[in-house]
């Protein structure tokens, strides 16, 4: 078993998401290297959001890379632009290695990989690895006005869930009929 060394990821509380798309904007401008959206637009910056808020059955669902286990995109990528990190369980991207073959775009079950004509490279959520490593929050999380997007530690999440489950079990066991 590969050892999980990095267990932090972004989760979305769908009940809190109000489809304002702040995450999309923040993601697009930050990855284009801008803080100000107007400046970015004026500079004709190449803005592609890695997260997209999609309406489905009346509910808004932010869709982005799910870092699939045994990710199809990494399986088919012939150039090493997408690869599977056995240690962290993450799909890693090195866009500069992309040869534009688009196999990943075809196979991604979530439509989370795009190919940019302008750069000739793939565009995909990288979980803002650098920021997370420095203990900071990804741009989309920072931009979310309702706190629907959160960085969580999977270990801590599991711990919390165990606690809650234990509590429920105790409640059930001690509940009077």
């Amino acid at each position: 078993m590969p050892q999980q060394t990095e267990t932090r990821t972004v989760i979305v509380d769908l009940e809190r998401c109000m489809a304002c798309r702040s995450c999309e904007t923040a993601c697009a401008k930050a990855h284009a290297g801008y803080e100000d959206i107007v400046e970015a637009i004026l500079a004709d910056a190449h803005m592609v959001p890695r997260v997209k808020v999609i309406a489905a059955a009346g509910v808004a669902v932010p869709i982005q890379c799910q870092h699939c286990e045994d990710a199809p995109c990494a399986t088919v990528c012939p150039s090493g632009a997408l690869s599977f990190d056995e240690e962290t369980g993450e799909v890693r991207s090195e866009p500069a290695r992309c040869i534009g073959c688009k196999a990943c775009v075809i196979v991604c079950p979530f439509g989370a990989v795009e190919w940019s004509r302008r750069t000739g490279e793939i565009v995909r959520c990288d979980l803002c690895e650098d920021l997370i490593e420095e203990g900071e929050e990804p741009y989309c999380v920072r931009a979310c006005p309702t706190g629907a997007r959160q960085v969580i530690d999977l270990d801590a999440l599991a711990q919390r869930k165990r606690q809650e489950a234990a509590q429920r079990t105790v409640l059930v066991m001690t509940a009077k009929p």
């Binding site: 088919v76 012939p78 040869i99 534009g100 073959c101 688009k102 196999a103 990943c104 775009v105 075809i106 196979v107």
Partner: peptide
């Protein structure tokens, strides 16, 4: 075509 189609 591009290689992706051949792969799939």
């Amino acid at each position: 075509t591009q290689a992706g189609f051949a792969i799939v």
